[in-house]
């Protein structure tokens, strides 16, 4: 038997995910019924029943969102802890790359949280309307989120059953650091261009959101998400660790770095989530000022924390870690 399955955290994690997958199944079936039979103008008993069921879907979705968010943090913390058992791993990066499922799983988890958050926002405005104006739309959102949750559950099981504790994995410096001269950055960028893009895209995204340009916001937010990830791993992260060779998205989640990674990645993801939610809702002619503001503030917080680490290092040492040519 895979010894990982006797790890307390893994057992609790898999158990909780199973319970949540079962609850998801309930709302998935209900949401399909809504899409097929929902008719607000009908006074039949069946329609009344559907309206009552809508309340259950809402309650379960809120519960799912809260627990999925908690479980995402728990998952990251757990795989970080598993680095003690998995040979070769020094932090979560090694464990998550122990097989092909890990990174996909993490990505799907992040998308699931987005789906559920989108549902909560849509649901909120749906209930404010007198005749459930967004009902069909939110049912589609929940069906999509449910499908993603099923996929996530499959990946959860596949990921944990396929970690071989007898085969050494790579540590983060082998995965992200010493690439023997190969450029890990996308589009053939160097660090200088990466930073120029990072700040340009940030300002661009904020201005596009402010000016309420949907197309531009979507494009710039998506690009900023990609560039921000690379910038944190290959540039800003090294200032968190104060070591030019330490390039890792996971180590900053550890106690040694005051868990700052949770704030860095949290502000980035929620900034992007709110930005995209603003775009989606504005397509339905809802102009959500507070969501837009939250997005701008969170992205600014993200940029501020990262810049703070660089500035702080420079002020203390008078030099940067690497020459930016």
């Amino acid at each position: 038997m895979n010894s990982l399955f006797l790890n307390n955290q893994v057992i609790v994690y898999i158990f909780s995910e199973t319970v949540l997958a079962l609850l998801t199944l309930i709302i998935f079936v209900m949401a399909l019924k809504f899409i097929r039979y929902w008719d607000f103008n009908s006074f039949s008993n069946f329609q009344l029943k559907l309206e009552k069921e809508a309340n259950l879907v809402m309650t379960i979705a809120t519960f799912l969102f809260t627990l999925k968010l908690l479980l995402l943090i728990y998952f990251v913390y757990t795989i970080d802890n598993l680095s003690l058992i998995v040979p070769g791993a020094m932090c979560g990066a090694g464990v998550i790359s122990a097989n092909d499922y890990g990174m996909t799983l993490l990505f799907v988890k992040i998308i699931v949280i987005f789906g559920l958050l989108l549902f909560l926002v849509v649901n909120h405005y749906d209930l404010l309307g007198k005749n459930y104006p967004l009902f069909r739309f939110k049912s589609w959102v929940i069906v999509t989120a449910a499908l993603l949750i099923f996929g996530e559950f499959y990946l959860d099981i596949s990921y944990f059953t396929n970690i071989d504790t007898s085969v050494p994995v790579s540590c983060c410096s082998a995965l992200f650091g010493n690439l023997e001269g190969a450029n890990p950055l996308p589009f053939g960028l160097d660090i200088k261009m990466l930073l120029v893009l990072f700040f340009t895209l940030y300002f661009g995204a904020v201005v596009a959101l402010y000016l309420e340009s949907r197309l531009l916001s979507t494009l710039l937010l998506a690009l900023f998400g990609v560039i921000a990830y690379y910038s944190v791993v290959y540039f800003f992260g090294t200032y968190v660790y104060e070591l030019p060779t330490h390039k890792c998205p996971f180590c900053m989640l550890q106690k040694e770095y005051n868990y700052i990674g949770y704030l860095i990645w949290g502000s980035l993801f929620f900034g992007l989530y709110f930005g995209f939610i603003w775009v989606i809702m504005s397509l339905r002619s809802y102009k959500l000022e507070r969501i837009k503001l939250a997005s701008i503030l969170l992205l600014t917080l993200f940029v501020a924390i990262n810049s703070f680490y660089v500035a702080n290092y420079y002020l203390h040492n008078g030099v940067l870690l690497e020459n930016i040519k």
Partner: peptide, 24 residues
């Protein structure tokens, strides 16, 4: 914290999942 979180997640997930439908 990990021990306390583990206990909380296991218990809270079970308890709240079990009562959601009856409460509704």
């Amino acid at each position: 914290w990990l021990t306390l979180t583990t206990i909380f997640i296991l218990y809270a997930t079970t308890f709240l999942s079990a009562v959601l439908i009856p409460v509704w």
